[in-house]
Nucleic acid binder design. Structure first.
Length: 654
RNA sequence: GCUGCUGUAGCUCAGUGGUAGAGCGCGUCAUUGGUAAUGACGAGGUCGGGAGUUCAAUUCUCCCUAGCAGCACCA
């Protein structure tokens, strides 16, 4: 006799064994039809799996998150079958479900083409239509290894070989095709439905390691129903429309060119956003008791050896020989072998420690909050570069807070408040927080790590933030907090960070005099709110789809005319707005008003101020605001006041 | 860095083994038009760079380079 407990607490009895399907049938025939799998004591298992002991059971139907994962995983299996039917030379490897869909990696000489995807997808729909049940089998380990090896599936054989000894080797069959898989699966292929689409082919390393063979990965998306699929595809379209590289060009914000790959040419309009953002952050930091500094770009390699970057970070640094170059037409660039090397800074922290070290610091001086809009260069791999989001020259809104150990909690807490308040001002209210804890390879005593992790955790709790733990993801020198914000179309961006560091002050021999008259090591908090100016502006562009909050917008209003007869009045409006510090443009072109409205609207100018003969006569303006049907008719003075109000930054609003 | 794809006018993109085209933009002229494209004419290209095959290469092949997608890495 076994007892099954349902989520509502109801108990059911079965003679000696049962299955999820039997339980569902006992409850109702409609549930039996809808049931896809069950959660038994917190683990997801097949509907047909035998239950032989007392258990709590939750029946999974299509609308649950678990079902969606099953759908995605099963679609991956069906794709693998389709691929092997069409391309018998392809070996299967792994195919998990992922966010928004699934992928499957295949080993094969020839990569898949875009045309292949169409054929594979067609075959998948046939396989689903066959409605083959997924059947689980447990195989003997040795037999399984031999079987897959003989079949030429060496990757599968390798996976089985590496499976923990206590784990069953399970194989799932769907018709004649089968795959090594832990499961669970849907009852049969038809449950997958039709809401999936193969998206793209890409290379991927076996087991994610760049030393291993490159496999061919096919990505797909899969959803519960066509409506969800369509919504996802619409979101992708929307993301493409917002692409900062496209908007950056269209709005004349910046450009990139191959002679300076990974570094941004900021145009007037883009740099206006930068300056406004920088001004805003600078004010917030001043209010929060930070000092601002500026440190050198080029520093001797010996300095980086001392800081530890030379051994740990050198492959990401730009190194310059400290030699006068040869200017003769022939011959090498350098006539002598360089004795010394300089490196362009990839981080600001070691330089900040040098400032800290000037003079003697007392425990009374701490905390010292040292900020820099630090321009750093990192020698990023070519394949990593992406628009202005991932660049080789970047400016961080960086700061290092030198504290005593007893100040960690308080400084962390106030940083969290500052960061959330900044994000809110910039339009991001949905922020996820992650705490990354000690990695396997680390510096420092376990006792110190305990204190550090506790302090960060406590600060987050005090700040009222819910957070998830990233075990083992901390830096080697200390644990860190990462702040992830969600943009207008639901994408996540990791921006802010706070990292505790016990190592660098030690390496660079920073100290302060404590109450006891002895030297002590300060702890460093590395922290950034935006991350980098480049990346954050990229995020802003995509989040707002180019329609920036007015205080950041490069063009806040355009004054334009209907005919040339009112040019003088338009100039007066324009001059007055300009003199009040607003970013206004004057459009006196000999074009029809329709055209001018269209062009400025497409350029995402939010306020178009039209002055024609009527407005001139009455000393008024007609303001057309982007996204609104009605125009406003305001007097000259009201216009100035209206725009002045609209363009106020969050700093002026409080 | 790895795999695949791409590079033609300022932008978006056609096209061809016999040295190139469209739309938008730009310039000139005409037009003075009340809220999402006025018309006409015109100027723009060593077809990413180099080598090879060929009588002939923007087109075919190879190498390099940059961009794009993904992987790895990461702010």
């Amino acid at each position: 006799m076994i007892v099954i407990t349902l989520p509502d607490g109801k108990k059911m009895e079965f003679s000696n064994s049962t299955t999820g399907l039997e339980i569902a049938k006992t409850i109702s025939s409609s549930l039996a039809k809808a049931a896809l799998a069950i959660i038994k004591n917190d683990s997801l298992i097949d509907l047909s799996a035998k239950i032989t002991e007392n258990a709590s059971v939750n029946i999974i139907t299509r609308d649950s998150d678990e079902a969606l994962e099953l759908i995605r995983h099963d679609t991956a299996h069906v794709m693998a079958e389709a691929v092997q039917e069409l391309f018998p030379d392809a070996q299967v490897t792994i195919g998990p479900s992922i966010e928004n869909g699934f992928y499957y990696d295949f080993a094969r000489e020839i990569p898949f083409s875009t045309e292949d995807l169409t054929a594979i997808e067609k075959k998948m729909r046939q396989i689903i239509e066959r409605n083959e049940p997924f059947i689980r089998e447990v195989w003997d380990r040795e037999t399984a290894i031999k079987h897959f090896s003989d079949k030429g599936e060496k990757y599968k054989a390798e996976i089985i070989y590496d499976l923990p000894a206590n784990e069953d080797v399970t194989v799932y069959k769907q018709g004649d095709w089968y795959d090594l898989c832990r499961g669970p699966h849907l009852p049969s292929t038809k449950h997958i439905g039709t809401a999936f689409k193969l998206m793209k082919v890409a290379g991927a390393y076996w087991r994610g390691d760049s030393k291993n063979a490159m496999l061919h990965r096919i990505y797909g998306t899969a959803w519960r129903n066509d409506k969800e699929l369509k919504a996802y595809l619409t979101m992708l379209d929307e993301a493409e429309k917002r692409d900062h590289r496209k908007l950056g060009r269209e709005m004349d914000l910046f450009h990139l060119q191959e002679e300076a790959q990974g570094s941004v040419f900021w145009h007037d309009k883009g740099y206006t956003i930068w300056l406004e953002l920088e001004k805003y952050i600078r004010c917030r930091l001043q209010d929060a008791g930070y000092q601002e500094v500026k440190t050198p770009q080029l520093l001797d390699s010996k300095f980086w050896e001392q800081s530890g970057h030379w051994s740990k970070f050198r492959e990401n640094m730009f190194v310059v020989p400290d030699v006068v170059p040869n200017i003769e037409d022939d011959g090498s660039i350098f006539n002598e072998e360089p004795k010394n090397y300089m490196a362009i800074k990839p981080m600001n922290c070691p330089a900040h420690v040098q400032i800290f070290k000037q003079g003697i610091k007392s425990y009374r001086d701490l905390p010292i909050r040292m900020a820099e809009f630090g321009c750093c260069h990192r020698n990023e791999p070519h394949g990593a570069l992406h628009g202005i989001m991932r660049v080789r020259q970047m400016t961080q809104d960086d700061a290092h807070i030198f504290v005593r150990e007893d100040q960690i909690l308080e400084e962390t807490l106030s940083f969290c408040h500052l960061l959330l308040s900044v994000y809110k001002d910039l339009g991001f209210e949905d922020v996820a927080v992650k705490l990354s804890t000690r990695p396997d390879v680390r510096a420092g005593e376990d006792e110190t790590w305990n204190k550090a992790e506790d302090a960060l955790g406590q600060a987050l709790e005090k700040a009222g933030l819910t957070f998830s733990i990233n075990p083992g993801e901390g830096a080697f020198y200390g644990p860190k907090i990462e702040f992830v914000l969600k943009d207008a179309i639901g994408r996540d961006w990791q921006c802010g960070t706070l990292q505790l560091d016990f190592v660098l002050p030690e390496r660079l021999d920073a100290n302060y005099i404590g109450e006891d008259g002895q030297k002590h090591r300060p702890v460093m908090l590395h922290r950034a709110i935006l991350g980098s100016m480049e990346r954050f502006i990229g995020i802003l562009i995509e989040n707002y789809a180019g329609k920036f909050p007015l205080w950041l917008a490069p063009v806040q209003a355009v004054v334009t005319t209907i005919t040339g007869e009112t040019d003088d009045y338009a100039e007066e409006v324009y001059d007055t707005l300009k003199s009040k510090g607003m970013r206004v443009e004057l459009d006196l072109r000999n074009e029809k008003i329709n055209r001018k409205i269209r062009e400025h609207s497409l350029a995402k100018v939010q306020h178009i101020i039209v002055v024609g003969a009527r407005e001139k006569d009455e000393r008024k303006t007609a303001i057309r605001t982007l996204g609104q049907k009605e125009q406003k008719f305001l007097s000259f003075d009201e216009t100035i006041e209206f725009l002045h109000n609209e363009t106020r930054s969050p700093l002026e609003k409080t």
